[in-house]
């Protein structure tokens, strides 16, 4: 069985695709999401084998969402779009498949055949932007989008990933690794990323570790392993 996630901001489009996929015995639709934030949650939780991804979505486009998916996690992506010349050109050059809305059954069959034949790949990451402009977040049931520049620091604990901004703490399904790679946040601890712009002071301890005090008087630990790279980054090491 191929577990499948449908991400589209239009309910009717999701329903339509679900309906079309019902004919294929080996496809099971495990979830439907209306936006990238929800989708990231489901992807992290269910790790589907196949994602039908709409490009035009609120705030975070399908393209940007690609960049948020953990590169180690192999998944097939099929783009779904109504009308976007630019995107179509991009698809032609790459392995990622696409279907046009309204979806033709034959075209969908062809697309699924291709997926069944080939092993999952991460080639689509070529399409993904190298830097994220938005971080999908949530706080309770409210979905939020935070710009990387507004982040003070990010940390992870058993309950998940937490993003600290000037006025709130929100949560995200993005991994620290993705955020480290695709934003300007830098690693200072196994569980912490810090925005260099928010550093006010650095205390260096005898044990070889240290502690950052942010502009807003928050404390962020620095582990021994990351102290030196951090100091180098900030220009302290001769």
């Amino acid at each position: 069985m191929i577990s499948t996630l449908i991400v589209d901001d239009e309910q009717s489009a999701r329903e339509e695709l679900t309906e079309l996929l019902k004919k294929h015995q080996d496809i099971s639709v495990v979830g439907q999401c209306a936006n990238a934030v929800d989708a990231m949650e489901v992807i992290v939780k269910l790790k589907p084998d196949l994602i039908f991804l709409d490009i035009e979505m609120p705030r975070i486009s399908g393209m940007e969402m690609l960049a948020m998916i953990d590169p180690d996690y192999a998944v097939d992506i099929v783009f779904v779009t109504a009308y976007d010349n630019f995107a179509l050109e991009a698809f032609e050059k790459n392995v990622a498949d696409y279907v046009l809305k309204p979806i033709e059954e034959q075209r969908l069959d062809l697309c699924l055949d291709k997926i069944r034949r080939h092993s999952k790949s991460n080639e689509f990451s070529k399409l993904a932007p190298s830097k994220l402009k938005h971080l999908p977040c949530f706080s309770g049931k409210i979905l939020k989008v935070v710009a990387p520049n507004d982040v003070d620091y990010v940390y992870s604990d058993l309950s998940g990933i937490h993003i600290v901004t000037a006025d709130e703490v929100v949560h995200s399904h993005l991994s620290l690794k993705i955020m480290e790679e695709k934003t300007d946040l830098i690693r200072c601890h196994r569980q912490y990323l810090i925005n260099p712009n928010s550093i006010a002071e650095i205390d260096v301890f005898d044990a070889g570790n240290g502690e950052i005090t942010t502009q807003r008087q928050k404390k962020v630990p620095i582990s021994r392993r990351y102290l030196r790279p951090l100091k180098e980054f900030l220009g302290f090491v001769s």
Binding site: E10, S12, A13, E15, E16, E19, A82, Y83, K101, P102
Partner: peptide, 18 residues
């Protein structure tokens, strides 16, 4: 027109089933 038209057709084709 183009965006609107494609989106509308898409929506209609989805609604038609139901």
């Amino acid at each position: 027109n183009p965006h609107f038209l494609f989106n509308a057709l898409n929506t209609i084709s989805a609604v038609m089933r139901k």
